[in-house]
Amino acid sequence: MSPAALRGAVDLSSLRNRPAPAAGAAAGAAAPAGAVDVVVDATDATFGEILELSRTVPVVIDLWAEWCGPCKQLSPIIEKVTRELDGRVVLAKVDVDANPQIAQGFRAQSIPMVVALIAGQPVPLFTGAVPEEQVRDVFAKLLQLAAENGVSGTLAVDGAAAPGAAEPELPPLHAEAYAAIEKGDYAGAIVAYEKALAENPRDEEAAAGLGQVRLLDRVQSLDIQAARAAAAAAPLDVQAQFDVADLDLAGGHVDDAFDRLLDLFAALPADERTPVRERLVELFGLIGAADPRVSAARNRLTSLLF
């Protein structure tokens, strides 16, 4: 796909001429001299620098949010692949809740959404959580496209970790799960998180990780068109509806996933509802109790129960 593919569909003009931040601010753009970190946070105020940086190296934009479970699984993979490219690509992470102008500029209707900038022009990459192998393939094609358009610079990479204190060492079973996820071995990650919860049932991070990796494991082999066709053909087929709800959630369409399962719950006989309720509770845990969409869905579920 050419960098001009989204012209007319994506308007970044309002972000192009932002004033540069004061010296020392976390801008996300590389200084001409000195080493830089290739993984940065981009904001509405600093996005103009990101656009300029994309004339030197391709910039990958990771649009995410704190409540988005699939985002938390995908972002470490993108960061790992970016760092391995030693300054040939920059990753700019954008919290869509804190930076609505960027989200609007890219017309981000679901997250995680990953796009790239080449010489200031947007290039769509993918939406939803994808395995590491696919991320690597997309990045390789992005580098080829960038070179074809005269963007083939390399930044001097800061060999140090990102600013701030070193991250605490992960517990062994958490580290085992992360290693399995990076290899695309979701079954292995599930086993590791289950062991962690067996040792400590109050391990909230393991519980959250288990829910997220179970979702990734379920969707990795699904064909979205086939799944939607099966669900449309059999509205009361619980597994068919589960498959589409999983795909919707992995793609950031949270309300669609909840509504589908709540409609299914309402349509089923009382003695067949338990698996649907359990799946809803699992998905609520992925998004987080504080999210208003979870609150609304819980309220509807409660009203259907009584």
Rank of each mutant, 00 (worst) to 15 (best):
P3H: 11
P3F: 14
D11T: 02
L12Q: 04
R16K: 00
R16F: 00
N17Y: 00
R18H: 11
P21H: 00
G24Y: 09
A25E: 09
G28S: 13
A33Q: 13
G34T: 10
V36G: 11
D37E: 02
V40H: 08
T46A: 00
E49Q: 13
I50V: 15
E52L: 06
T56M: 10
I61N: 08
A65N: 03
I77T: 11
L85M: 13
G87I: 05
G87D: 02
K93C: 15
K93R: 15
K93G: 13
V94S: 08
D95S: 13
A98F: 09
A98C: 05
Q101H: 03
Q101P: 02
A103H: 10
G105F: 03
A108P: 12
P112T: 01
V114R: 13
V115S: 01
A119G: 13
G120R: 04
V123G: 00
L125C: 07
L125V: 06
V130T: 03
V135W: 01
R136P: 00
V138I: 03
F139P: 05
A140R: 05
Q144F: 03
S152N: 04
G153A: 12
G153W: 12
T154K: 11
D158Y: 09
D158T: 11
A160M: 02
P163I: 13
G164M: 04
A165L: 14
L170Y: 01
L170C: 02
P171W: 03
P172H: 05
A175R: 15
A179C: 00
K183S: 13
A189K: 09
Y193C: 09
E194W: 12
E204A: 15
A206M: 11
A206V: 07
G209S: 14
L210D: 14
G211W: 02
R214I: 02
R214T: 01
D217A: 15
V219P: 01
D223N: 07
Q225H: 12
A226D: 14
A229S: 14
A230W: 08
A230N: 11
A231F: 06
A232K: 09
V238T: 15
Q241M: 08
F242V: 08
D243N: 14
A245C: 12
D246K: 00
D248Q: 07
L249Y: 07
L249Q: 07
G251K: 00
G252L: 01
V254T: 14
D256A: 15
A257L: 09
A257H: 08
L261N: 01
L262S: 07
L262Y: 02
L264G: 06
F265V: 05
P269T: 13
T274S: 11
P275R: 14
E278N: 14
R279Y: 01
V281P: 06
E282Y: 06
D291I: 09
P292Y: 14
A296Q: 14
L301A: 05
L304H: 09
L304A: 08
